[in-house]
């Protein structure tokens, strides 16, 4: 298992050498969404608290770093951490409200969506941060300002982020915190009876998850040199974040990565394909069909099924 992981990491590390510019950008997206999925996986997959408002953390993270850079000249490398911290604060507020008042299932989903929408509306109307037009970052190509002449830098940053988040989840699975989360997902009442402080653990999962998601906001802002409220706070991004770990296997270590390797190329292909015919947004139909198929035939996601196949092939 360890060798497989290191082998996979080694292949991914040398991959940019053989990729063309388009394939490279697809792989950057694969890793970026794998990272976001892994961050979501902590609270949505392991703890079973379905947040469909994670775009809020991406937006908060991105705006924080970009505004700090514009107003104080702070390098986004540090602004990234500030953005993560602010996202964690928002995650803490959402988690506190949701978990203190016992919002479960759909009600928690609605709470998270509502917070993300409020963030979007605030950002759209706040002229200091660009209002509805958003923020544009002047391209200088200076790595100290997280800007690069060569896109391979983004690839390696995305790879490092994915590896980091996956290592955190790997460690979590082996500690009391992560083991508790898997039980909280199954039955919170039984957990309480067995001495598990469920509130504190759900809140911890939410804060950690929103911090990591917030880091991705800076990546997004500087990779595209721009931030629009609709794009970074909107429901579509929240759905993109949620759907990969669900298809890959929510609450599994490799689920978000496998899910992203399945869905991201599919999204790119169908976007390119349907986009030419003027069918913008048709890739969402592909998503919808795939999600229905996963729910019907692989409710645990792809990873458990792949695991069984691997074990059958190599007994």
């Amino acid at each position: 298992m360890t060798w497989l992981a290191l082998g996979g990491l080694a292949v991914l590390a040398v991959l940019p050498a053989v990729l063309g510019p388009y394939a490279l950008s697809v792989f950057i997206n694969i890793l970026f969404y794998a990272y976001l999925g892994q961050a979501w996986n902590i609270v949505g997959g392991y703890a079973g608290q379905l947040s469909v408002g994670h775009a809020a953390f991406v937006g908060i993270g991105g705006y924080t770093a970009a505004v700090l850079a514009a107003e104080t000249g702070l390098t986004p490398w540090v602004g990234m951490l500030a953005g993560g911290a602010l996202a964690a604060v928002l995650g803490g507020v959402i988690g506190y409200l949701g978990f203190r008042f016992g919002l479960r299932g759909f009600y928690f989903v609605l709470l998270t969506v509502a917070f993300a929408e409020v963030c979007r509306i605030v950002a759209s109307n706040w002229e200091r941060v660009g209002g509805a037009v958003g923020l544009y970052i002047t391209f200088t190509g200076d790595p100290r300002q997280m800007q690069f002449q060569d896109d391979r830098a983004w690839y390696y940053i995305a790879l490092a982020l994915t590896a980091l988040a996956t290592a955190i989840v790997w460690g979590m699975e082996r500690r009391r915190f992560g083991i508790y989360l898997t039980a909280i997902r199954e039955d919170e009442t039984a957990c309480e009876a067995l001495g598990v402080p469920t509130f504190r653990h759900k809140l911890g999962a939410m804060v950690l998850s929103s911090f990591l998601t917030g880091l991705a906001g800076t990546f997004y802002a500087y990779r595209y040199s721009s931030l629009q409220p609709g794009a970074v706070f909107g429901i579509p991004l929240s759905v993109e974040i949620v759907i990969r770990p669900i298809v890959g296997g929510a609450g599994t270590l490799l689920g978000p990565i496998v899910g992203s390797f399945i869905l991201t190329p599919l999204a790119e292909l169908s976007r390119a394909w349907f986009g030419q015919g003027g069918w913008h947004g048709a890739h969402l139909i592909v998503y919808g069909v795939l999600l229905v198929a996963v729910v019907l035939f692989l409710p645990q996601g792809a990873v458990p099924v792949l695991g069984r196949l691997v074990r059958r092939a190599a007994p």
Binding site: R174, R175, R176, I179, Y180, A183, L194, V196
Partner: peptide
């Protein structure tokens, strides 16, 4: 284990 972890934090 969910029960025993309370008094024995080491998994």
């Amino acid at each position: 284990m969910i029960a025993t972890l309370g008094r024995h934090p080491d998994p």
